[in-house]
């Protein structure tokens, strides 16, 4: 994408006069970038464009005409052919991965250049955080045998992100989004078409297909909210069923995470109650040594499911979480510490 005839910068007043033309697709293509950037930063302009676009669509509706009957079957056949997994996606993990990545794609499309330059909580600009996601997603694509980019960027999270930023930091955001989309498509295809149930190397540990899908869903959601936070937009959360699946994933992995951070407690059990839509109750053994959870838990902790997920993503410190503890407070602290064992950025 490139402008062949870069137009003169226009004032907001001039841009406002072009909103009707934009709604009618009658603006000049070389001016569209300026108009779209104006709309992205001016909420009144965005509302006016939405109003005029609705009017334009209704002008189109005055021409409604039944298409040839064969077209319906043709559209549905083409849709099925494009669906890499015939019919519905085969399991809920693929659906939540698909949903979250689709949401992210749509969200990024709403970001203007000022938004992309905003600094997120982890120090990266929004643009670089998107590049980081592409670096990670393409690493997954590599791991599952569907490489999408020839770039010797390694598998160290920081090093790989830096290498991607060096290449894509100076290019239009669409360039790295193409890599990210290709990687998402590759992972989806792998997961949908008989992905092996064996373990894959990921960030220094061996993980299964389901763990990989949920952790990618998790990271995509967390980073989208990082950007929303940086540009002052309200945070958005997945539907309750998806939150529950993600919380369940974290509970299944919590024993291993406790061991990873050196806080495992063999033979002891926690009852974790996550409140709010998508929450639930889990009995969790506090070490991955094969011991099972028992009804007589040594500690019970209760907190909001969103707070827990933010803790897993390390978006809140252990002592900043509002949590009710009954029983051994030391165990509760270790659980909250271990929750973010796999958080990367």
């Amino acid at each position: 994408m490139g402008l062949t005839d870069a137009p003169e910068p226009m004032s907001d007043a001039e841009l406002r006069e072009l909103l009707a033309a934009r709604a009618l697709d009658a603006s000049v293509p070389s001016e569209d970038l300026q108009i779209d950037a104006f709309v992205a930063r001016d909420s009144d302009a965005a509302a006016e464009l939405a109003r005029l676009s609705t009017a334009a669509a209704w002008i189109g509706a005055t021409e409604a005409l039944t298409p040839p009957p064969r077209l319906r079957a043709s559209v549905l056949a083409a849709a099925r052919a494009r669906n890499r997994a015939p019919g519905a996606l085969p399991d809920d993990l693929m659906r939540i991965y698909r949903r979250e990545t689709d949401e992210f794609d749509a969200f990024v499309a709403t970001l203007g250049s000022d938004d992309l330059a905003a600094t997120t909580a982890n120090g990266l600009s929004a643009r670089d955080l998107i590049i980081h996601l592409a670096a990670m997603e393409s690493m997954v694509a590599d791991a599952v045998g569907r490489p999408v980019i020839e770039l010797d960027a390694g598998t160290d999270v920081g090093g790989r992100t830096a290498a991607f930023v060096e290449v894509f930091g100076v290019q239009p955001i669409d360039a790295v989004l193409t890599v990210w989309r290709d990687a998402v498509a590759g992972v989806t295809e792998w997961a949908a078409t008989g992905a092996p149930r064996g373990l894959l190397p990921w960030l220094g540990v061996e993980v299964g297909r389901d763990t990989l899908l949920v952790s990618r869903t998790f990271e995509t959601w967390i980073h989208a909210n990082d950007i929303r936070r940086a540009i002052g937009r309200p945070l958005e959360h997945p539907p309750a069923a998806q939150l529950h699946r993600m919380a369940d994933f974290s509970m299944r992995n919590l024993p291993a995470w406790l061991d990873v951070v050196g806080r495992g407690h063999p033979g002891r059990t926690a009852r974790v109650v996550l409140t709010g839509p998508g929450g639930g109750t889990w009995l969790v053994p506090l070490a991955a040594d094969g011991s099972t959870a028992v009804e007589e838990a040594d500690v019970a902790i209760e907190l909001d499911v969103i707070d827990w997920c933010h803790r897993v993503g390390e978006r809140v410190a252990p002592d900043a979480v509002s949590v009710r503890v009954t029983g051994d407070a030391g165990l509760a602290r270790d659980i909250l510490e271990a929750a973010s064992a796999l958080a990367t950025l």
Partner: peptide
Amino acid sequence: YDQYASFVYGL
């Protein structure tokens, strides 16, 4: 499609 095909196609 059933809901909007006439609109889209006619336009």
